[in-house]
Design a protein around this nucleic acid. Structure first.
Length: 219
DNA sequence: GTCCTGTGAC
DNA sequence: GTCACAGGAC
């Protein structure tokens, strides 16, 4: 059993797809809320990020964020953690978006790798957040790599590259380059990472049990 | 090393 | 009740 990296990755996604079935993930949400969500969910779970979004209520638009004083903004997004940092990040994001007149159609016109560069230049947006915005807000095929993907794939025998971009490339070359697929597969990863493949794994009923090397494989 | 909260285990 | 832990970016 010496499968290639690509074969393992294909096998993992196929198995997860069979287990969890099809579902829509994020592709129909309002673009700016997706962008905010991508920042608010950093270093926390979606539950906390959602509380922050709920607290923002009617300010949940680029104009709303721009108009809200930094301290007020921080106060509202408190439940997501690192709220002072994240308030600055949301401001930076909004300022960048203002350059496009808050028009997602204009953003979508930018070529993918160029747009990724632009997003990465915004303070507080790293690889993962940039890719989440690319897929779920602009519908460009950029695969989101996260802690779950690292954990799940390394536990199943993938020699996971340390650098984000290298890992992303490895995953992207293993699956067809389609936005819907990227969006859905990342959803599968998140779902599985939360239900089964936690740092201290819940292996009972895990669909990947037959190929899993256990929780302690060096990634 | 720093930034922070919510949860779940004890 | 305390407290370790999960979770990205700079």
């Amino acid at each position: 059993m010496n499968r290639s990296q690509t074969e393992i990755i294909e096998h993992v996604f196929e198995t997860l797809q069979n287990h969890f079935g099809c579902f829509e993930w994020w592709l129909n949400e309002a673009p700016f809320e997706v962008m905010m969500g991508a920042i608010l969910v950093q270093n926390t779970n979606w539950n906390n990020a959602e509380k922050a979004l709920t607290n923002l209520a009617e300010h949940c638009s680029p104009q709303g964020i721009a108009a809200l004083p930094l301290e007020k903004l921080a106060e509202r997004i408190r439940p997501s953690g690192y709220y002072n940092q994240k308030a600055l990040k949301l401001k930076a994001l909004t300022q960048w978006y203002e350059g496009y007149n808050y028009d997602i159609a204009l953003v979508k016109q930018v070529e993918q790798s160029l747009l990724r560069q632009e997003l990465l230049a915004i303070k507080g947006i790293g690889g993962e957040t940039a890719d989440a915005i690319l897929v779920y807000a602009t519908h460009k095929p950029s695969f989101v790599i996260d802690a779950y993907a690292r954990r799940i794939l390394s536990r199943n025998g993938v020699k996971v590259p340390k650098r984000y971009d290298d890992f992303q490339q490895l995953v992207e070359q293993a699956i067809p380059r389609q936005t819907e697929l990227y969006a859905y597969y990342h959803g599968l990863i998140v779902e599985h990472g939360q239900q089964f493949c936690r740092p201290k794994p819940k292996c009972d009923g895990c669909p990947l049990l037959p190929t899993c090397l256990g929780p302690d494989v060096a990634s």
